[in-house]
């Protein structure tokens, strides 16, 4: 009873943060399950993948309704994140758990650094007014690229988006994270997508990305239904709360707070990778 309740409460917390920051929640849920509940890392990843699908479904439906998520851009990118997820889901079962813990710690450090390095000016929902990137390179002019752009911004750097998508999908499958950790900064900084739209679009993409690898985990017995159930209920509630708070909360303050939590979690995961935790 107590453990189920604790898992639900933990899910609510990570679901709220995940939805607000477009991270899907897995980046905190996997450490919570492994460090807090002693679940084997691979089982925690399987549980997390189920939870990030639920997070994505709950928040993406709100973002789609409001017209914030860019459906076409999200689908174009999730083709590549799904390819990465398929690759990652296949190799995840070959990797040593301590190696995965070390990789997780590195991703957490990267995430904390990214959160802190995003400049306030770049965090505003400012549209990219022209089709030129920061280096003055000509904008992609194809029909697809035009179709992926929004009314007040033009999407650029499709190759970076595709490459980053494969990378994000692979990480998602190995670590049980949504992939938003890579995709939100990639879309915002490299592709010129306003932050709020990048966050909403990332939420939309996470469902397909995570389900591509979760199917592999499911068929290989990598999903524990008893641990997944209370976690998913909590994450669902948290995601619903987070998506409704998103337009009222100053995300810059949240990023700083979240960076500190990520750094501490990275330290704990490094200890586990070294066999100390």
């Amino acid at each position: 009873m107590e453990i189920a309740l604790l898992l639900i409460v933990g899910g609510v917390v990570v679901g709220t943060f995940g939805s607000l920051l477009g991270l899907g929640g897995g980046v905190l849920l996997v450490p919570l399950l492994t460090l807090g509940f002693n679940l084997p890392l691979r089982e925690a990843v399987g549980v997390s993948l189920v939870c990030v699908i639920v997070t994505s479904g709950a928040s993406a439906s709100v973002f789609l309704d409001r017209g914030v998520a860019n459906l076409r851009l999200g689908m174009a990118l999730e083709l590549f994140t799904a390819i990465g997820a398929l690759l990652g889901g296949t190799i995840a079962f070959l990797l040593d758990e301590r190696l995965v813990a070390g990789l997780f710690a590195l991703v957490l450090i990267y995430a904390a650094t990214t959160m802190l390095r995003l400049k306030p000016a770049a965090s505003e929902d400012v549209a990219t007014p022209t089709g030129e990137g920061p280096t003055g390179a000509p904008a992609p002019a194809g029909r697809l690229m035009a179709g992926l752009s929004g009314p007040n911004y033009r999407v650029r750097a499709p190759i970076a988006g595709a490459t980053g998508g494969v990378f994000a999908g692979t990480l998602s499958a190995i670590l049980g994270i949504g992939g938003g950790l890579v995709m939100v900064p990639l879309m915002h900084i490299a592709m010129g997508v306003p932050l709020r739209i990048a966050t909403a679009t990332s939420n939309l993409m996470i469902g397909v990305t995570a389900s591509a690898s979760a199917i592999v985990y499911l068929l290989r017995g990598g999903i524990d239904p008893y641990a997944a159930a209370p976690s998913a209920v909590g994450v669902f509630v948290g995601a619903a709360v987070g998506s409704r708070l998103a337009h009222r909360v100053d995300v810059r303050v949240l990023r700083v707070l979240f960076a500190g939590v990520l750094a501490w979690t990275a330290f704990l995961m490094l200890r586990r990778a070294a066999g100390l935790g």
Binding site: R72, M75, L79, A82, G89, G147, V216, R220
Partner: peptide, 23 residues
């Protein structure tokens, strides 16, 4: 273009079923 994108995503998901079943 978007039809091709969506169809390709479904193919990747189907490959995931194959990969999961095979392993």
């Amino acid at each position: 273009e978007m039809t091709i994108v969506a169809g390709s995503i479904l193919i990747v998901i189907a490959l995931g079923v194959v990969a999961g079943t095979a392993g």
